[in-house]
């Protein structure tokens, strides 16, 4: 089931990092097989913006949100950062604490992280630098107004 959503206010750990931002999920490793909503299989490094948009269009439960990076601060955990996003059309402010190398998918650009060299070193996933102003792909439930 999709990971729980984050709420605004106090900094929350990213749901994809379970309870603490100290681990990277296995599916970011280069070569990982990803299944799109139409059943097509692609490698994580080959994914394009359209793959997420089309998969969300097919999904009856999920919808794509645009989340703009507003701030990037040093995290409370070593090797972590706190990223403040403006989420969705209302630019709701949400903060997440993630590892420096945690990749986000930027519209029209692909995988990006706060420390691309570290991402490439650990995951063999080529990565751009995540910057303030980048618009990332995120998800929301269609049932949420």
């Amino acid at each position: 089931s999709p990971a729980p959503a984050l709420a605004p206010g106090p900094v929350q750990a990213s749901p994809s990092l379970s309870s603490s931002p100290t681990t990277l999920p296995p599916f970011f490793m280069r070569g990982s097989i990803i299944q799109l909503a139409d059943g097509e299989l692609k490698r994580v490094e080959d994914l394009k913006t359209e793959d997420f948009i089309q998969s969300a269009e097919i999904s009856s439960e999920l919808k794509i949100d645009s989340s703009t990076v507003e701030r990037i601060d040093t995290g409370q955990t070593p090797n972590a950062v706190i990223i403040q996003f403006g989420v969705g059309e209302h630019k709701a402010q949400v903060c997440v604490e993630v590892l420096l190398e945690y990749p986000f998918f930027v519209f029209g650009q692909g995988w990006s992280s706060c420390c691309p060299d570290r991402t490439t070193q650990l995951l063999e996933l080529s990565c751009a630098k995540l910057c303030v102003g980048d618009v990332c792909v995120s998800l929301t439930l269609r049932s949420l107004r």
């Binding site: 984050l6 749901p15 599916f27 097989i33 994914l47 989340s67 995120s138 998800l139 949420l144």
Partner: peptide, 25 residues
């Protein structure tokens, strides 16, 4: 030659986070 048996397949939506606040605005 040995065929790989189980290659994990991950759903597309596990790659991107849910960031939208869940409380009512």
């Amino acid at each position: 030659n040995v065929e790989p048996r189980s290659v994990p397949v991950f759903p597309w939506h596990s790659l991107v986070p849910f960031l939208a606040p869940t409380q009512s605005d």
